[in-house]
Design a protein around this nucleic acid. Structure first.
Lengths: 204, 204
DNA sequence: ACTTTGAGCGTACATCTGTACGCTAATTTA
DNA sequence: TAAATTAGCGTACAGATGTACGCTCAAAGT
């Protein structure tokens, strides 16, 4: 069991992480946050920050990991929904858009730091995205009988298109998101269809 | 003709733009540059900066416009090469990778600011990318007989995949870029094939 | 009951930032 | 030729930043 002291520490740590997430929005990226701003929002003295993180980078990496986890958990829930029947693509896209809407800031940090200036950050985001890709590749390889290479290329393309649409959707109103989602579904179908065609060509 | 004075001013302005481009690299984004740093690199006093740009944002937008222009010019040259025969996809990808290699910083600013924190920047980058998409959509609509909607979705998917691969390629060594390029070609073929299949389905 | 630990604080400092202001000197205009 | 314009400079300042240092005092350990 956790002592009173450890509990309080954990609480403050959470306050820091939450403070950082809350400060993210379309005009504010993680790298533009200062240690002092985060500390201010979390209502602790700037110097107390160091009791929890070595520096802002460490906080950021924590956020990326946490964000990736949240994301995967939510998508997994969506997949369960898909098992009930219906178009896997459609349901996945809808789930994704819902996640996007309810956790925009989790997305922002992933999307922004993916092309950010810190190599460790980029690596961390790449790792998270890699989870999605390989899960999807295995799924496709098994259910649609693709060669490993093709399954991999296909999964990568799908994830790329989805994430990219996600980035665009972040700035949009609901109506425009709907249009975007519809187009995304078409694009994903293109990839799926095309991959199938390439597989057939290889098979004969 | 341009007076001595105007010539000198233009020269300094260029020095500022070049200085900014030169400071960009994997660890340094435009938004992390300070006015003073740029001025220092261009060898003018910080306050002289204002004789040329209202602020750093104005410099940045100039760079985005210039970068987009450079990019389109180079891709156009590549397309001429494609007209001589061969796979359009393969040649376009190769051209793209060459451009990437010779102008990495032009790319960096576009890729980074695409998901950056400044709305005007994002809009400017979106505008540049839109050029590519619509050129490509028209091309596909004409030569491959797609419906406008399908051509648009296809072009968007292609450009997304290419730009995304470009972002990944920026950090890579030549060998890995080759692998990436090959996979990209496969993915683009998927989209093209799949789009064709969807079009046929619509036609009947 | 005692000592030790450590989360959080306040003060302090060097460094960097954007930019206001006024000057100079060379070019342009009249 | 005299007057007006303006690119570039130097000085100056207020504000923000990261972080070193030492203190307090409640909890944990003995």
């Amino acid at each position: 069991m956790m002592g009173i002291r450890a509990q309080q520490k954990e609480k403050t740590r959470r306050a820091l992480v939450d403070a950082a997430f809350n400060q993210l929005n379309a005009e504010r990226s993680f790298s533009s946050l200062s240690l002092r701003e985060v500390a201010r929002e979390a209502k602790i003295a700037p110097t107390s920050f160091y009791r929890h993180f070595k520096d802002m980078n460490e906080l950021g990496l924590t956020m990326v990991d946490e964000g990736g986890l949240t994301l995967r958990q939510m998508m997994r829930k969506g997949r369960q929904r898909a098992e009930a029947g219906g178009s896997v693509i459609r349901i996945s896209v809808d789930t994704f858009m819902e996640v996007l809407e309810s956790n925009p800031n989790v997305f922002r940090i992933l999307l922004h730091e993916r092309s950010g200036t810190s190599a460790p950050f980029r690596a961390a985001v790449a790792r998270e995205i890699e989870h999605f890709i390989s899960e999807l590749a295995h799924y496709t390889e098994a259910t649609a009988k693709r060669s490993p290479e093709l399954a991999r290329a296909q999964a990568e393309a799908l994830v790329t298109l989805v994430f990219n649409a996600g980035a665009a959707a972040l700035d949009m109103k609901r109506v425009d998101r709907k249009i975007l989602a519809d187009r995304l579904v078409i694009q994903l179908r293109m990839v799926a269809k095309g991959s199938e065609a390439l597989q057939h060509k290889m098979d004969k």
